[in-house]
């Protein structure tokens, strides 16, 4: 199999290409792949951005427009008139930050117990986490609502955060356990022998080493909750998030308007920008975490 799929370097070894040539070819293939990747990823996004800056009257043309024709902020202005953007954004931010922090923290502790502390029933607990993902969220809404009502958790930020972080915890545990296993545990072992307490081990040794993985999961969970629709829609009518505001625009009314693409595209760009900023910031943290981990290792 591998013989059939020789890469440039292999070719060079057999004398088909000169080393310089093979390096050049290697680069070319890489750039081609990278280019097509960027094209596929960016084209729909570009199109959404383009739509959000195009006047509504020009959204439908044949052939479609590939470039900004009449740059306009009207869609954003209309959006701001229709939707209390700032309030929604604040709610989304509280919801997403809270949920990702709680889920990553809870999952970190649990996966440490599952990956490092060998105990009877660990497999069972782990399997239970796995299985609990398979309980479809949508099947639990009605009983959940009654439970939440009895606990006075409806229309509260913390109630919503509990729901969302619970939804994401099993997955986070799932990803973290194999990560933890990859990290050499000699350091922890040495610390334990030296008399370190568990919280010291967790805080001072494991956490720094896990930082890239935790940051990655934080971003993932942040995005999942930022875009989460069903829970905020049903449980927090008074703390509406951007996603709820968005679906209000996106559902298909049987009478009166319908999927206003001008507002929808503007709103989704509004939703994506904070996430992108966050990702760019955290990208630094991930890199920093990696290098620190490497230094210690």
């Amino acid at each position: 199999m591998a013989v059939l799929t020789q890469d440039a370097r292999e070719g060079a070894a057999r004398g088909l290409f000169s080393p310089a040539m093979s390096k050049w070819l290697d680069r070319l293939i890489f750039l081609l792949l990278l280019g097509s990747f960027l094209f596929v990823v960016l084209l729909p996004f570009y199109w959404i951005v383009l739509s959000s800056f195009t006047p509504k009257s020009e959204l439908f043309t044949t052939p479609p427009r590939y470039w900004f024709s009449n740059l306009t902020f009207d869609n954003y202005r209309a959006l701001a008139d229709n939707v209390p953007l700032f309030r929604y954004m604040l709610n989304s931010l509280i919801f997403a930050l809270g949920s990702s922090a709680v889920s990553v923290a809870a999952a970190f502790l649990a996966s440490y117990a599952l990956a490092r502390l060998n105990f009877r029933g660990a497999n069972l607990v782990f399997a239970a986490f796995v299985v609990s993902i398979a309980l479809p969220q949508i099947g639990t809404l009605v009983p959940l609502f009654e439970l939440f009502k009895n606990l006075n958790l409806i229309n509260t930020h913390h109630g919503l955060i509990l729901l969302m972080s619970s939804l994401m915890t099993p997955f986070t545990v799932w990803i973290l356990v194999p990560f933890l296993r990859q990290i050499p545990f000699e350091i922890e072992e040495a610390a334990v022998v030296d008399g370190a307490r568990l919280h010291q081990v967790l805080w001072q040794i494991v956490l720094p080493m896990m930082r890239p993985a935790l940051a990655t999961l934080f971003i993932i969970n942040f995005i999942i909750s930022w875009n989460e629709l069903l829970y905020p829609l049903v449980f927090a009518q008074r703390q509406r998030t951007l996603s709820v505001g968005l679906v209000q625009l996106a559902v298909q009314p049987t009478a009166g308007g319908g999927r206003p693409w001008d507002l929808l595209s503007a709103m989704s760009v509004t939703m994506i920008v904070p996430v992108l900023i966050l990702v760019l910031l955290f990208q630094r943290l991930i890199v920093a975490g990696l290098t620190r981990g490497a230094l210690k290792g």
């Binding site: 990278l34 960027l38 990823v41 960016l42 729909p44 996004f45 959404i48 971003i219 993932i220 995005i223 930022w226 875009n227 629709l229 996603s243 968005l246 679906v247 996106a250 929808l264 595209s265 709103m267 989704s268 939703m271 994506i272 996430v275 992108l276 990702v279 760019l280 990208q283």
Partner: peptide, 15 residues
């Protein structure tokens, strides 16, 4: 590019 990679994931499913 890594940040760009996340764009599809960051766009709400409904959109």
């Amino acid at each position: 590019v890594r940040a760009i990679n996340l764009i599809p994931w960051a766009i709400p499913m409904v959109v």
